[in-house]
Computed example of a mutant assay.
Amino acid sequence: MITEHKESLNPDDPKDLIDAYLLEMKDRGENPGEAGGVRNETDLRIVLFDALFAGTDTTYNTMKWIFLYLAAYPDKQRKLQEELDSALPSGSLVTLEDKPRIPYTEAVINEVLRMSSLTNVGLPHSPVRDVVLAGYKIPKGSMIIPVTASIHSDPRYWDQPDLFLPERWLSPEGKFVMRKEGYLPFSTGKRSCVGESLARMELMIFTATVAQNFTIGPPEGKTIDLLPDFDNRIIHMARKQDVVFTSRNP
């Protein structure tokens, strides 16, 4: 991709991030005293990897978890489909404007994010001085890695944490209610995921569109395995398995 952009680069009409980055590299080479910072091809590759991994791979893997949970819990899937059928005119595609009208869909997505805990550990932090937290002394310079997956299954924050209950995200009136304490699928603080709003938009539109058109289930005689692939210690990847998509509009 970088090579192709070099060949088609038009300094007067940069078309995307790679073009802009290449122009910055060129400017830095021609004006080393004016263009500061790290601008080289290695750094550009890392930027592109971050964009692909954080912006695409995580959404893709979350969607796999959503499909598996819908297949494993057909009653929850039917409830989601009934909501979509009622809230959206027949044949119409969901948009962001429909979000307030499909609270159960959003509840299902939030519950899958909690149960799957895709990014099961947060970013490392390090204290600048000795501190005591909850009775534990943490020396200056220690590496602290939060284990968000354990928080998502902590009974101090969640009633029956091992159960898949999208209803926990709904008010008695049936409206979606976002809980913050004990819920960290996008981390928290200054280093929280900058793409959270984009990811939530994608997950809502993808989930609703698929559920409008297909019913998802396990192959005949099979069950869905919702345990993560423990070979990956950083990301809770779904285990490889088959699911069946049956058209709702034959």
Rank of each mutant, 00 (worst) to 15 (best):
L52T: 08
P127N: 09
T215N: 14
A199M: 04
R45I: 07
A72T: 10
Q241R: 01
L96F: 13
Q241F: 06
D13R: 04
L22Q: 06
S86Y: 07
R168T: 05
R168P: 09
R200V: 03
V147C: 10
D85E: 13
E173N: 11
A107N: 01
E24D: 09
R114Q: 03
N120Y: 00
F206L: 09
S192T: 05
D162Y: 09
D98I: 02
P172Q: 12
Y69R: 03
I66Q: 03
E30H: 00
F164H: 05
C193W: 00
P124K: 09
A149C: 02
R39I: 02
P185W: 00
E7K: 15
D229M: 03
E97A: 07
A199E: 03
K240T: 10
Y136V: 03
P228G: 06
L9M: 07
T215I: 12
A51D: 10
P228L: 05
G217L: 10
L48I: 11
E181V: 15
S150C: 09
L165T: 08
L22F: 11
S92H: 13
E24S: 15
G141H: 04
L165A: 14
G37Y: 02
A211H: 08
Y136M: 01
V128K: 04
D50R: 01
I102W: 07
A107D: 04
S92C: 10
D242E: 10
G174K: 12
G195R: 02
T119G: 13
P166Q: 08
G135I: 05
S153V: 07
P185M: 03
I144S: 06
M63A: 05
L184T: 15
D19R: 09
L184G: 08
L226V: 02
S8Y: 15
L163M: 13
E106V: 08
D231A: 15
V112E: 02
F53E: 13
L68S: 14
K175C: 14
P155Q: 01
A71Y: 00
L17C: 10
P100N: 09
Y104K: 00
I46F: 11
L133Y: 09
T62D: 08
K64Y: 04
L198T: 04
T95F: 09
L23G: 07
D225I: 05
